[in-house]
Each structure stands twice: as C-alpha cells, then as structure tokens.
C-alpha cells in the first residue's frame, strides 16, 4: 500500500464541487435528458415558427415555448440528482466522504445549477434562432437587439436552471424518487390547471406561469383577467422558490439519519 499526499489542510467547497461534477457527468441519464430537452425546445420552436400567422404576436415568446415544456425534464433531472443518491445508497458514501451536509447540497446545487444554466441558455438561443428562422415569408423575425428580446431569451435559460434547482431541493426534502417527481409535477403543472380554473389571482405565482408568461416575454402579456409578474419580479419569485426548497432540503439533510 502506498502513502498518498500528505494530509494538510482540509476539504473545502471546491473539493465537494469536483466530486459532484464527477458524479453528474458520469451518469448517462444526465446527458440523455439534457439532449432531449434541447432537441425538444428546438423542435417546438420550429413547429410554432412554421405555423405562425399573426405577425403581431410575441414571436420571441413563441420561439421559447419549448423551454416551458422542457421544465419538467430538467426538474426531474434535479430530483434524480438527489433521490438517486438515496435510492442507491450512494448518499452514505457521499456523506462519509464529506460529513458537512449543507456543503454537499450547496456544491450539488452549484454544479447542477451551472450545467442546467448552460444548457438552458444554449437551448434558449438555439430555439430562438431556429424558431424565428422558421417563420413564414412576410412575417418579420424578431432580432436580439429589439426591446425585451435578448432579456426573454436569457431569462428563459435562467428559468430552466431555477426549475432544475427546485427539483433538486424537492429531492432533498422528499427523498423518494416517485414521490418527489409527483410533488414536482403537481406543483409545476397540475396545480396550474386547478388554479387556472379556481383562483386566477394565484396564477402569476406558479412556476410554469412565471417561465411562460413572465420570463420569456418580449412584450408585456396583455391579459384582462390575469396580471402576470414582470420579467424581473418573476425571476426573483422563481429564485425565491429555489432558495426556499434548497434551504429546507439542506436543513432536513443535516437533521435526518442517512
């Protein structure tokens, strides 16, 4: 047996982040899900673009429609990044290597969030260019230099990242994959359907509505019944959701037996 490097100092955030990056990139499911998400966002952008008839519509928002649909996938990926550790028993190896549990979740969030942001931004920009290029003749394509357009594309990618982080936080709270996915789907999608019928006052605060109707709009949404949040307020609200789920998740992770 050989002696390894002299043990000076101690583990830091950068070590934990390297572990989490090694874990994330070594699971094939990570890349499959992200590839499907990007392909879906582009496909939907092209389909919506080709079928556009109204030149006055928010064509930027239309081109980013696939981002909203891809939220479920990145959310599930976030859930799995955490629940996969619990279901496999990997969590015990992780926490034996790094006993500082909030640090583990923080590193996981930083690494997963960075990947999700990069993929979200890439999906947003490619979908925007593909969707607007697919517009029929006679309908002028929006350009990134026009008011609100660049903001909509960039915030779409940010929303994608934040929903992934909400999934990660839910995974730390719920721990069981099917239950955590049920909470995610229920919170992001199903709840939206009920709220749309019952109390429209809550509608602007739902994650899916924030991404679809606040973050990815170039023109303010004109809806007589519902006043959606402004893009920046929507970003703040979604960030708050992610911070709260991750905060509660870290608190529970530190308190519960692994």
């Amino acid at each position: 047996m050989t002696t390894t490097t002299a043990a000076t100092g101690r583990y830091r955030f950068s070590h934990v982040a390297r572990m989490e990056w090694a874990k994330l990139r070594s699971l094939r499911s990570t890349w499959w899900v992200l590839a499907v998400t990007v392909a879906g966002a582009i496909g939907i952008a092209v389909a919506v673009g080709v079928n556009t008839e109204d030149a006055a519509a928010d064509l930027t928002n239309n081109a980013l429609a696939g981002i909203s649909l891809g939220l479920l996938l990145v959310g599930v990926l976030g859930v799995l990044a955490m629940t996969g550790e619990f279901s496999s028993g990997m969590i015990r190896a992780t926490l034996a290597a790094i006993p500082n549990r909030p640090l583990v979740l923080a590193a996981k969030a930083a690494v997963f969030g960075t990947v999700a942001l990069a993929v979200g931004e890439a999906a947003g920009f490619i979908a925007f260019f593909a969707g607007t290029a697919a517009l029929p003749d006679g309908i002028p394509a929006p350009a990134l230099g026009q008011p609100g357009v660049l903001r909509a594309v960039v915030l779409g990618g940010a929303g994608f990242c934040l929903v992934g982080l909400i999934g990660l936080g839910l995974g730390a709270i719920v721990r069981h994959t099917p239950a955590a996915i049920a909470v995610l789907v229920g919170g992001v999608y199903v709840l939206a359907q009920f709220v749309a019928v019952a109390t429209q006052a809550l509608m602007p605060y739902l994650p899916i509505a924030i991404v679809a109707n606040s973050l990815t709009v170039a023109q303010p949404m004109a809806d007589d019944q519902v006043q959606f949040l402004s893009p920046w307020a929507g970003l703040g609200m979604l960030g708050l959701y992610a911070a709260v789920t991750l905060g509660v998740g870290a608190w529970l992770l530190a308190r519960r037996d692994a």
Binding site: T4, Y11, H15, V16, M19, A22, A93, A97
Partner: peptide, 10 residues
C-alpha cells in the same frame, strides 16, 4: 474518482 476528488486524492 468522484470519492477521490472529494478528499483531494489523485
């Protein structure tokens, strides 16, 4: 490799 990275092992 993931575990090695966490504790600065080569």
């Amino acid at each position: 490799r993931a575990l090695a990275a966490s504790n600065g092992l080569p």
